[in-house]
């Protein structure tokens, strides 16, 4: 529900901003996006009219994912920017193909309402020589976010009430998740993980060349109890695991491929031995044992916060109980 709220709030706030306060000439600083170098401040890009309230300038479009990546329960505010006069290209149900000059912006926040604190904003910039991923750390006053190439640790209280040392990833760690075949790539905005209505409006606004073909949307995360367990679980694994666990990515050598489109039982872990899991396997023998989540390494590693055991390896200091539940329910219902 929080995601829906956030989007709604953004939409309202943006509308209000447009009427009241937004200067007509506020726009994105394209040279910060495309030129070499690493801008030191988030404000250098001009993505926001009011960054503290996360109100974007015209042309910076908020979006949500149907099933998102979980990051210690952080609220995520996502935006996409495509330069004026340019368009992203639809590519079936896969990633929208953004032109050079585009940016994806994701802000991580904890706390509700007036207690909300922005912790970090990650930007993915499409430059002539490829995508670059940079992390920005918000100051205590919430007036600016500053480049933190080496990342940081920030104490936060998660929505589950846990006190954690939240990890802002360093620039290399950005690539660990965003790396595919040696280059940085976006992960989230695949057509199948975006709302058809959003795609339609993005297309109507001129940012997308056409409506993507053949898209079966991933289920909405908040509908997880209502949809078939395999759909909810596979969508979760796609959004939370498959950026590494797929050919060409960080965990390719494991042979485990958790992409939505992978249907080979062994490849998705069913009765598959671990390869390099080490103590991450615990006392268990297979990634997934049909009918028995308690004997499945997948569930064991998702349920652990301990480095060396925990999966995902990055961006997780606590356990996603809802994620564990969804995957466990799916495995429980599997037949041999």
């Amino acid at each position: 529900m929080k995601f829906a709220h956030a989007i709604l709030a953004l939409a309202l706030a943006s509308a209000a901003g447009a009427i009241a306060a937004r200067p007509v000439d506020m726009r994105v600083n394209d040279s910060a996006v495309v030129d070499d170098g690493m801008p030191r401040k988030l404000s250098d890009y001009g993505f926001f009219t009011d960054a503290a309230r996360q109100l974007p300038v015209k042309g910076v479009v908020p979006y949500r994912l149907n099933t998102p990546l979980w990051s210690d329960g952080a609220e995520k505010l996502r935006f996409v920017y495509v330069p004026a006069g340019m368009q992203a290209k639809a590519d079936g149900e896969g990633l929208l193909q953004f032109p050079v000059g585009s940016a994806l912006v994701k802000t991580f926040a904890f706390g509700e309402g007036s207690d909300r604190r922005l912790v970090e904003t990650r930007v993915l910039l499409h430059r002539a020589d490829g995508w670059i991923a940079l992390p920005y750390l918000w100051n205590a006053e919430q007036t600016e976010a500053t480049l933190a190439v080496a990342g940081a640790r920030v104490p936060v209280t998660t929505p589950a009430g846990e006190q954690i040392s939240y990890r802002v990833p360093n620039k290399n760690q950005c690539k660990e998740c965003h790396g595919l075949d040696g280059v940085v790539t976006p992960i989230g905005p695949k057509a199948r993980n975006l709302a058809p209505e959003w795609l339609a409006s993005f297309n109507k606004a001129g940012h997308l060349d056409r409506m993507p073909d053949g898209v079966t949307p991933l289920p909405l995360w908040e509908d997880r109890a209502k949809v078939a367990p395999d759909l909810a679980a596979r969508a979760y694994l796609e959004a939370n695991c498959a950026h590494c666990h797929r050919p060409g990515a960080t965990a390719s050598n494991s042979g485990l491929d958790l992409r939505w489109e992978q249907h080979d039982p062994q490849a998705i872990g069913i009765m598959k031995h671990p390869v390099a899991a080490g103590r991450g396997a615990g006392d268990l023998t297979y990634d997934i044992v049909p009918g028995d989540p308690g004997q499945s390494i997948l569930v064991f590693r998702m349920s652990s916060p301990e480095p060396g055991v925990a999966m995902p390896e990055l961006g997780k200091q606590s356990v996603d109980r809802d994620g564990v539940d969804v995957v466990s329910r799916w495995i429980s219902g599997m037949r041999d």
Binding site: Q173, E313, Q317
Partner: peptide, 12 residues
């Protein structure tokens, strides 16, 4: 005292 990541040093 490591709190994160799957290895001490990763080279890519």
């Amino acid at each position: 005292g490591q709190k994160d990541a799957g290895e001490g040093l990763l080279v890519t």
